[in-house]
Design a protein around this nucleic acid. Structure first.
Lengths: 134, 134
DNA sequence: GTTTAAATGCAATAACGTTGCAAATATACA
DNA sequence: TGTATATTTGCAACGTTATTGCATTTAAAC
């Protein structure tokens, strides 16, 4: 699917910033930070515009946000929410990359009496195969 | 155990800021933010001192940090790391509280070939019993 | 092409967090 | 108890991340 089709399908205006973000994120096999996304885009966008674009795309479940510890924020294509497709994310402490781990599903946890479940953020930390290799 | 004993046991200087933080966090059944901790302390400490104290206490595994999404940082007593005692945290989207879920253990996930596992951050989101009650 | 609502860029602001340095303080030892 | 020393604290400055208001620009509908 083309990036602009995603926008059209969600009834969103086709702006170059949004289209660029989608296209970059869609073709990446790892989650990307604002900076990484910016560096792959031809145009030069204001940070505000970026933040607002991310927000819109997130609200429309076109991308999802992954936060590692405090400050590392990355985005990946797709919607993680639908309860049965929730997946974990892997963070490589060596190269600081984040990727979706579609193979690691998240079971609905057993919560204490009277608690309602909404979702889970799961960041698995370790070293990826590229960094571990000799 | 008294707060100052914890410091002595770890070979740390007994300062009122550190002692206060430990004492507050130790007697709370939920994780607390910097602001929440500050408001429960008699003295008035500089933010820098707070941050440095948190860092020291964390490095000594006296407290552990829990991060929800981007910006909400809370601290809880104890060390979450020892692989067999890793636990999840619950975040109530209503009252914004965070608590350790000792009952929800985190299994070592099945990672792709060649990946090394270091640990997992797991934040379960939902509504706690107090907020859900009628 | 014109209209209109939405998106953008800019400036200002706020929160979070870190660093360098001088002053204060906790501990060890006399 | 007093003194020496290394650590800790408070302050100021700085940097990054993120948000808001407003004027300008732009995409889409007609």
């Amino acid at each position: 699917m083309k990036a602009y089709e995603v926008l059209v399908n969600h009834g969103l205006k086709r702006t170059s910033c949004r289209e660029g973000i989608i296209s970059v994120v869609m073709s990446s096999n790892q989650a990307l930070s604002e900076e990484e996304i910016r560096s792959k885009l031809p145009g030069n966008y204001d940070r505000t515009t970026f933040y607002r674009s991310f927000k819109t795309l997130e609200e429309n479940k076109i991308i999802h946000k992954i936060v590692v510890d405090n400050l590392l924020v990355k985005y990946a294509f797709g919607n993680p929410v639908p309860a049965d497709s929730e997946h974990a994310h892997f963070f490589c402490v060596d190269c600081n990359t984040v990727q979706c781990l579609d193979s690691v599903h998240i079971d609905k946890p057993q919560l204490p009496e009277g608690y309602a479940y909404a979702g889970t953020d799961m960041i698995i930390k370790g070293v990826c195969n590229k960094c571990k290799a000799p």
